[in-house]
Amino acid sequence: MKKRFFMPDTYWETGLLEQWLEEQAAQGWLPVSFAGYSSGKFEKAEPQILRFRLEPNQPESFAAREERENAYRDMGWRFAANLGEYRVYYCGDQDAAELHTDPAAQSWAWETLLRKLRRNSCISMALLAVWTVLQFRSIWEKGIPVETFLYGMWGIWLFVLWYFTRSLVQNLRALRGIRAVGRRLKAGIPLEHGGDLKSSLRRRKWGEAASWAAIALLVLFTVSIAGGASSMDLEEAPVERPWVAMAALDPETADLEMDWAQYRENRNLLVPFCCQMEQWRWEFGPWMRADFDRTVLPVFAKALYEERLNTRIKARPNDVVEILEDPRFDGAAVVTGRDSDGGRNIQMFVAYKNKAVVCQAIRMDADLRDHLDDFAAILAEFQ
């Protein structure tokens, strides 16, 4: 029978790993293989008292390694498995000589490994920092970071920040431990055997539990985002609609047959309710789109309002921007222009009140400023 066990979380403390292996052997479990520095696979055997020692896995020729292995066997030590950058040896003779008795020779044997571990930790932190920056940069470059954040990426960002912080702390802790081992060996002090095994294993288990919990929450979050979205024909949309209907803006245009008329709705933790309506006719015919969002905090509504206004201004720099001073809104603006041939009116109204934001854009012969009462009523009703 084989079973996998979590390892101590301080892979640079070889004495602690040796103590852990000895306790496993005393319980009747012998090592078979290891998954990096996270866990090991063990095979059931008779409980026995064994000594374990870890040696750096040095780059050497086959002949040199075979000669060293033969010398270790003559001393009573047997090879068990590779554990990351270490080779694991065990011995059943409690009186057998240690693999290393000279601290200076031991320091020389460990010098290359310690340099490699330090280099790996530094590279890991550098790559982690670059990866984290790229995650945020790719989202920010979309041009609508507030909307992207509110519509679901906040969960991804939190996961990225958690993973970055956790990995950074682990790497800094490893660097400090590796340097302490190096200073000890340079001072001619032999490496200690043993340590606070219970605390190390407890940290490992809590760390693994936190990782799996974070992954589970991320999966649930992704599923909830997908499950909270729905799409339907505009005719099937709810009766209470947070926008000014095309029939109210231009009855003649509303009588035309539209080639597209869709309604989409979404719900998530930061935006409990948001919907989007779009209808248009081919060949540069009439077009209308409306977005409504009810956020959990007024600060989110204000940020979303400002982003949508600024995005419109950036996309159409020649349009006329009118900031409305109306006490019924916490912020409101109208952006007016003409289509490419200078004919049809193109206009957008955007406003927010408390936690709600409404944004409606049209391409038709109508003026959204004539319906400020309707927009104020929408924001008051859908808080």
Results as ranks from 00 to 15, higher is better:
H100V: 05
R51S: 02
Q58T: 13
A96V: 09
E55M: 06
T101H: 03
S61C: 01
R51G: 02
Q94F: 02
Q58C: 04
W77H: 05
P47E: 06
N82E: 10
D74F: 05
G76D: 10
E60I: 07
F79C: 05
H100W: 14
N70M: 11
Y86S: 04
A71R: 15
D74Q: 14
Q94A: 04
E55V: 10
E46D: 13
L54K: 07
E85F: 11
F79D: 04
Q48V: 13
Q94N: 05
P56N: 07
V88S: 03
L50H: 02
A96D: 11
R65L: 14
Y90Q: 06
Y90N: 10
F62C: 00
Y90S: 14
D93V: 01
E55Q: 11
A104K: 13
R68T: 13
V88T: 02
V88N: 04
A64C: 06
G92I: 01
F52A: 01
L83Q: 04
L83S: 06
V88E: 06
A45L: 07
L83D: 02
V88W: 03
I49S: 14
Y89L: 07
D74M: 13
E46P: 05
N57C: 10
T101W: 00
S61V: 03
Q58V: 12
G84H: 06
Q58M: 11
A63T: 14
D102P: 03
E66N: 15
A71F: 07
G84Q: 02
P47H: 09
D95C: 00
E67K: 15
A64W: 12
I49P: 04
Y72K: 15
R73M: 04
C91E: 00
K44V: 04
T101L: 05
T101A: 05
H100T: 10
S61D: 05
I49D: 15
A81R: 07
A71I: 06
R87G: 01
D102E: 11
P47S: 09
L50W: 08
P103W: 01
F79V: 04
A63S: 15
N70L: 12
A81L: 12
E66H: 15
P103C: 03
G76F: 03
A96N: 12
D102Y: 03
Q48I: 08
M75H: 04
L99K: 07
A97S: 04
P103Q: 00
A97D: 08
A71G: 15
Y72M: 15
F62T: 09
E69L: 12
R78M: 13
G92V: 02
L83E: 00
E85M: 12
D102M: 01
R53N: 12
G76P: 05
R68L: 12
